[in-house]
């Protein structure tokens, strides 16, 4: 597994307490010894309730959060906070955030939001053709018409903003997309649009996706494997089919039992 893994997280520990508090050992760690691996074309969902540490794990993978112990390996090389990562690694791991409006600069047009990524990473910029044409193409890939390029995020709907976020991530031709509750804030009738888009992009571009969510129904639709977090620890990792059909850990069973379905109400 580890030989072919795109991301390998081993014994990850993150604490938001001071060093002294940590030494005393009385305060729980936000992430407490988490290990998992993600293959290059795989969608892994991390599920858990608020405070379980799922978002912190995602932030460590992207490099927005430093960890105290353990390691995050990308292509076999240990990576730390984003500022210390080589540009190629930074490019390769991109994130889509929960709140589509808050994660786009309201003063920039969609065109400049995407162009900015190429100014930061000139190696990803389209060569031999105009940026505008490349931006139009990216927007088309995420299901937006070219007219959106000149608009600002404030003039877009939630679903459109989330498509722009995805286009911005794709502009750097990443190998891993980390989606933190990327459909949770969207209207139900828009959620399935974005899920379809992600599933399609994954197939077309061979993307790996780390999908952080609390919505088990969405996980069942798009994940290959599922990792369940509870109080900073991974309590169970299994293929999606196994996890939903044959949950092993009592906490997983509790989560599944509590989840509501439309059927059988």
């Amino acid at each position: 597994m580890s030989a072919s893994a795109l991301i390998e997280v081993s014994d990850l520990v993150v604490s938001f307490h001071t060093r002294r508090e940590r030494r005393r050992g009385t305060q729980p760690n936000a992430v407490d010894g988490v290990s998992f691996a993600l293959r290059p074309d795989e969608t892994l969902a991390i599920v858990g309730e608020s405070g379980s540490g799922k978002t912190t794990v995602a932030r460590c993978v992207v490099g927005l959060q430093a960890h105290q112990e353990g390691a995050v390996l990308f292509d076999g090389a240990s990576v730390g906070p984003v500022a210390k990562r080589p540009p190629a690694t930074r490019r390769a791991i991109q994130m889509v955030f929960q709140d589509p409006a808050a994660s786009l600069n309201p003063r920039m047009t969609v065109r400049s939001i995407i162009a900015e990524t190429w100014r930061t990473h000139p190696s990803a910029a389209p060569d031999g053709r105009s940026w505008d044409a490349a931006i139009d193409e990216l927007l088309a890939d995420v299901g937006l018409d070219a007219g959106v390029a000149t608009r600002r995020a404030t003039a877009l709907s939630g679903g459109q903003c989330q498509r722009v976020s995805i286009a911005r991530a794709l502009a750097l031709r990443p190998r891993l997309l980390v989606c933190d509750e990327a459909v949770s804030a969207l209207d139900v009738s828009v959620q399935s649009q974005i899920l379809r888009l992600l599933a399609g992009l994954r197939a077309a571009r061979g993307l790996a996706i780390l999908f952080i969510t609390h919505d088990l129904g969405v996980v069942r639709q798009i994940a290959d494997r599922v990792a369940v977090m509870h109080q900073g620890r991974l309590v169970e990792t299994a293929t999606a089919d196994d996890l939903f059909e044959r949950p092993d850990h009592p906490y997983t069973r509790k989560l599944l039992d509590a989840a509501l379905d439309l059927e059988g109400a």
Binding site: V190, Q193, R196, Q221, D241, D261, L262
Partner: peptide, 15 residues
């Protein structure tokens, strides 16, 4: 468009 937990559903044809 409501995904089920107790059975596997395909992603709905979006509006």
């Amino acid at each position: 468009s409501v995904p089920a937990v107790r059975s596997k559903t395909a992603i709905a044809e979006p509006l």
